[in-house]
Design a protein around this nucleic acid. Sequence first.
DNA 1: TCATTTACTATACTCTGTTGAGTAAATGAT
DNA 2: ATCATTTACTCAACAGAGTATAGTAAATGA
Lengths: 109, 109
Amino acid sequence: MPRESLGEFEQLILLAILRLGQEAYGVPIIEEIENRTGRSVSQAAAYLTLRRLEQKGWIRSKMAMPTPERGGRAKRFFSLKPAGTRRLHAARAELLNMWEGFEPEMDTR
Amino acid sequence: MPRESLGEFEQLILLAILRLGQEAYGVPIIEEIENRTGRSVSQAAAYLTLRRLEQKGWIRSKMAMPTPERGGRAKRFFSLKPAGTRRLHAARAELLNMWEGFEPEMDTR
DNA sequence: TCATTTACTATACTCTGTTGAGTAAATGAT
DNA sequence: ATCATTTACTCAACAGAGTATAGTAAATGA
């Protein structure tokens, strides 16, 4: 059985979906994480994690029609399910509580 | 080879060490995480993660003398090494960037 | 001497993260 | 039409991180 808490990368994926809203499909999700964290994200890692998150019931997905542009294949769009939003919220609350009062130390390297 | 980024539980352990300062040994580390996150932490999970973090060079440890109290065995005290502080800082920065502008959505439920 | 308390360890296993390569379906050029 | 190119997604194998169950070790107190 999967664990209740979010993995570190799972959390980034959920946050990217939250941020992207209607535009949340594989490629922009990867770009969003790369742009905002500075790390590089492989497609395989992203899509596999997306599938696992869907299996756990934290996100849902739906295929869309292909778009008329070069290489414009059909996209699979993702959105958060209530359970996923709750997990994200819980993960944030945990970290805020752990950081509480120590933000200054953190910011001065 | 271990990965560069912090695992989800590793991050909690490092934060507990940061918070506890001179008092950072196994038992209080576990209690700090339990009290601030509400989840239960097994001793095995904590000590194993501590050992792995030390092997990676992110924390250091030192055995202290036993204390004169019932069951007062020698404690192993932990402290952050510069590399660990940097990883913690980087993990926080990544999440802040991902959350940026979306805190309100997160707080409403 | 032995039960009790505090602190730490061993082992095995599952879940999560990462890599390297590959497939599929669209358009554009010749 | 055919084939290179672009965009989007998939497979399979493995390494790393997280968890559970159980147990050991070294103190004190009765």
